[in-house]
Design a protein around this nucleic acid. Structure first.
Length: 307
DNA sequence: AAGACGAAAGTGGTTGA
DNA sequence: TCAACAACTTTCGTCTT
C-alpha cells in the first residue's frame, strides 16, 4: 500500500510500517509519513471454493474522492426521522452532533475540498481516473499540512492540474482557472509547490495531447488534425519544441495544418481556443515555416499559379 | 474593414552567482 | 537574495486581401 520509500522530512530511508496502527513512521525523525492506512490483508483463510465464497466480502470500491475513502457511515440527514418519537429525535440529533464533533479538522477539510474537487472535475469533464488521482494528491497534501497558509480551493485546483498532466489529458491553466475561479498564477504556484513537496514527477506535457481538443473546438476535420500532429512531430524532430510553451506550439501547427488544407481559421480563433495570443502563434508559425519550409512554400507557389 | 504582421515595452518565473 | 534572461503577453501601428 505504501509507496513511500524515504522520509520526506529528513531523507532517511529508515521507514517503519506499523500495520496495526496503519501508520508509516520515520524512525529517524519521528515524522508520521502516512496515517489511517487500511489493512488490505485477509484475516481469514479459505480452503476451498465454497469457503472462499462465504468468507470473502467486499463493499463499494475504495475511493479517494470520498473524504473517508468511502468507508464511513453518516448519521442520516433526512428520511426516517418522522418515524421516531420525540425521544428518538433527540437521540438522533445528539448522534449527529457527536459525529460532527468527532470529525477531525482534516476530515472536515477533506470533505469540503473533495466536494469542490468533484465540482471542478465534472465542470471540465475530466475522466474518473484523473479525479481519483487528484483526490489522492490532495489527500496527501492535507496529511502533510501543505494546505496551511493556502486556500483550499487553490490546492484543489493544483492537485487537479497535476493529475491532468500525469494522465496526459492536459488542461490549460486558463481552463482550470475558469472552472475553479482561482487566479491562474495562484494555481501555478500551488501546483509547483505541491508537486515539489510530494515529490511527484511530472513529465513536460506533450503538445500533441492538446491537438484533438483544440481541433474539435475549432471544428477542424480529422485529416487536418492528423496533419497537425504530423507537423508537430517534424517540429519536435528539429528541436523547435524545447523550452516553448506546449500550447503555443500545438496551436501553431494546427493553424498551419488548417491553412495548408484549405480549412483556414484566423489566428485570433486559434489563439482564443488555445489560450495564447496571436503573437505567440505567429512566432511559432514563423519558426515552423522556416524549418519545414517545403510545405508552405509549395502552397504559396500553387496559389500563385492559380492566379 | 478585417485579418495578418511586426516592433517595443512589460510581466512572471527560472537560473546562477 | 538579486540581477540577467528567455518565453510570452499587451499594445499599437502598418501592410495585405
Amino acid at each position: 500500500m505504501s509507496f513511500v520509500k524515504k522520509c520526506p522530512e529528513c531523507g532517511s530511508s529508515n521507514i517503519l510500517f506499523n500495520s496495526e496502527k496503519g501508520e508509516v513512521i520515520c524512525k529517524a525523525c519521528g515524522l508520521v509519513v502516512e496515517e489511517k492506512m487500511i489493512d488490505f490483508g485477509q484475516e481469514w483463510r479459505e480452503f476451498d471454493h465454497d469457503q472462499a465464497a462465504k468468507r470473502r466480502r467486499t463493499g463499494a470500491p475504495l475511493s479517494y474522492t470520498k473524504f473517508d475513502k468511502g468507508l464511513g457511515t453518516d448519521v442520516g440527514q433526512k428520511g426516517d426521522i418522522y418515524k421516531l418519537g420525540s425521544k428518538g429525535k433527540n437521540k438522533f440529533f445528539r448522534l449527529r452532533k457527536w459525529q460532527y464533533r468527532i470529525s477531525t479538522a482534516i476530515e472536515r477539510n477533506l470533505k469540503l475540498a473533495l466536494a469542490e474537487l468533484k465540482r471542478v472535475a465534472s465542470y471540465l469533464k475530466l475522466p474518473k481516473s484523473v479525479e481519483e488521482e487528484s483526490a489522492r494528491i490532495y489527500t496527501m497534501a492535507v496529511q502533510r499540512g501543505l494546505v496551511r497558509g493556502r486556500s483550499m480551493e487553490s490546492v484543489v485546483a493544483g492537485a487537479l492540474y497535476a493529475a491532468c498532466r500525469r494522465h496526459e489529458v492536459p488542461r490549460t491553466l486558463d481552463e482550470l482557472s475558469e472552472a475553479s475561479g482561482i487566479d491562474k498564477k495562484e494555481i501555478g504556484r500551488t501546483y509547483r509547490f505541491v508537486t515539489r513537496e510530494l515529490g511527484i514527477r511530472i513529465l513536460p506535457s506533450n503538445p500533441v495531447d492538446y491537438i484533438p481538443r483544440f481541433a474539435s473546438a475549432l471544428k477542424i476535420s480529422a485529416e487536418t488534425q492528423s496533419k497537425a500532429v504530423e507537423i508537430l512531430e517534424l517540429a519536435q524532430g528539429s528541436e523547435l519544441t524545447s523550452g516553448r510553451g506546449p500550447t503555443g506550439i500545438a496551436a501553431a501547427s494546427l493553424y498551419v495544418a488548417a491553412l495548408t488544407n484549405n480549412e483556414k481559421r484566423t489566428q485570433r480563433e486559434v489563439a482564443d481556443i488555445a489560450g495564447v495570443t496571436e503573437v505567440t502563434i505567429r512566432n511559432r508559425y514563423k519558426e515552423l515555416i522556416k524549418k519545414l519550409n517545403l510545405k508552405e512554400v509549395l502552397k504559396k507557389v500553387k496559389k500563385e499559379e492559380v492566379k
